[in-house]
Design a protein around this nucleic acid. Structure first.
Lengths: 217, 217, 217, 217
DNA sequence: GATGAATGAGTGTTCATTCAT
DNA sequence: AATGAATGAACACTCATTCAT
């Protein structure tokens, strides 16, 4: 399982470099092979095509990420079920939400991001032109489901049906922004430690934003 | 006399379509010309090269946008100079900040976005590979200057020197997010009216976020 | 006659620069027009095509040069009729040949070259691709006629028929080299004065060469 | 096993024809491929670009030529070290210089030229626009070093410092002319035998020229 | 006299991909 | 498991030239 062939390994390594440098579209298979010291035929023995090569680089990490995101936000959703929104101060809200617990979870997400930093960056910022170019959107969708439940809970709605068009719009935005936060951390912090520290401010921003929205008259 | 020649017009029109469909990199000049019913030579009579063709599509709008952004955020900065951050409720803060006035300005930005919706989308989501690919970052930088001043005022700092690494990081994020808000509005709302309405929630989110950050202990 | 139209003048001037910089083939009419501040149509009003434009630049000078060369070498031929080759020292030969007179004529050629230096260089070193690319060969042919007579005289032949294949070959070479001398002077000396001075050594070389050939056993 | 693949061979062959016919600049890669019966991609499999294709045609021959020229002129320089110039007759000089020995060497140069006649012609008369366009000049420079030493010896100078501007000019010319002699032989004789025969007259011319210069008062 | 517009064929070069061996 | 060879379509771009106005 871990005895991946030498050549395949080298190819993946060089593909990583090429895609990271130039992005999916501008990356040249010819170049990857040259760098790896093999011919294009070898590449096509291991990988179906350009897309598949890119996929081989990111698939595992992407799956892991999807799992984590789902788990994270399921837990968060559950945790916040409790707090129907009132007019509390941010400090109070943070407490009510079990901020400390939540942070622990978010930290585990961030930790994952940095464990796979290179691939995550590839996936989120260098995939334009591949079938992964809208992957962030897919993640947004996943987050959105859970945020919808959370939003309903905080608004004190009885059912999904009470959601207005405006509710849905802002939920989508906040889901989108949650993903943007992760992307931003992964691309702007140089290691986990920094990532975790900066994340705290980012989460404060996000939570503040949520209550800004929830408490709007 | 008609200001722009038939052919040039047609060329710009077809270029708009091609770039919007495929993005800058994948767009084919050959294709644009074929669609416009002229030879490539004709295109090169009107435009220096691919970049210049793209530029002709977006330059005016971009300039206008830059102006508006600068004006918008200068005014906002001035408006908020007054309110050194305390521990107020969001409602109180919104009032203190002159939320209503600010909205008026933001609305004018949004109105501009929708007046040039097509081009704005082109510029912000289809320019990869052209010299405009980092245009959003450039706009972030502009916003960041003003947000830095605003942050200092709200934090009650005496000078820029008091800004920690974490302060700078979150300021950059919030600047980035402001631009994201505009992009999101331009790409997710179908007209000005909807844009202006959704913007109000987005601004509530943003202001909430700011105070979430400012009031963190 | 001298009131050549402004535009035509400007065009010729810019063509001169372009051809001199890039040579005939790489020169771009588009570029010439741009530099002259007119459109290609204007160029085609004055000149039939690229070749004709180049021709307009060099025709007069070329005619003058042809005249001079003919005259020069007719006179030289006549002057040397007298000296059937013996086994004299170079000094003696120079005298016998009326070296001083000859120099005077050659000087007038060189003077002409430098009066039209720019065009001469254009013609002799930048015309590849045009119909003038073998112009030097044409000049060689002219010189060759006269050198043939001179050679016959010096060898003491009774008629052209005595010329062997080897005689003809070396005559052709020496004619070729005479032209090369002029090209070399025109391209390596910065003004008439230097040209005339260096020419003296060159002629000594040439005359020495002739006698090297003539006196070979 | 056959050392060079069919296609590559064919490509080189057709390239040879195209370059010889039209010169480097006007030669069309498309045409070469069409003639060879392959697609442009095939050409680019074997050759990096147009220049490299041309280079593949001439590189070996050029290296060989450079070697020969260096060897030839080193030997010649050594051979003439002995004869500080007096006022001898050409016949005497030729003897003193060991004319016969020298001829043997020159003959070997000429033999090389004819062994690679086609390529030599390509290199010296069809390379304009490629990186080889000034190759003759480079060869002149090499010859010039040796001729400078020879000139100093014949003039009886003690050091390089005694060389005047005029000395340098004529040395450069004579170096240039030596190369011209080779070009002329390669382009005007149809085989080695003729080349070697004509070369003898050419060398007589050259040596005569040298003494014409050296013995000038 | 000159413009502005347009042609159409051409350039060298790059690409992902295929396949017999 | 991998090579070496080749395809064929595409690319952005440049050129000399033409012609109605």
């Amino acid at each position: 399982m871990d005895d991946e062939k030498e050549t395949k390994k080298k190819l993946l390594e060089c593909a990583m470099n090429e895609f990271s440098e130039k992005g999916y579209m501008k990356a040249s298979l010819r170049n990857i092979c040259k760098e790896a010291g093999v011919t294009t035929g070898a590449l096509y023995f291991f990988f179906k095509d350009k897309e598949n090569l890119f996929g081989s680089l990111v698939a595992d990490t992407l799956n892991g990420l999807n799992e984590i995101i789902e788990n994270h936000f399921i837990e968060e959703a559950v945790a916040t079920e409790a707090l129907a929104g009132g007019d509390m101060s941010i400090a109070a809200l943070a407490e009510a939400q079990g901020f400390e617990d939540d942070m622990a979870i978010a930290r585990s997400v961030v930790r994952y991001l940095f464990e796979h930093k290179e691939v995550i960056e590839l996936l989120l910022t260098k995939s334009q032109g591949s079938c992964y170019e809208h992957i962030a959107d897919a993640m947004v969708d996943k987050v959105e489901e859970h945020y919808t439940r959370m939003y309903i809970a905080m608004k004190g709605y009885k059912s999904k049906k009470e959601l207005t068009k405006e509710d849905k719009f802002i939920i989508h935005w906040m889901s989108h922004d949650q993903i943007e936060i992760f992307i931003h951390l992964a691309t702007h912090c140089k290691n986990v430690k920094e990532g975790e520290k900066q994340m705290e401010n980012m989460m404060a921003y996000m939570i503040g934003g949520w209550y800004g929205v929830i408490n709007r008259k």
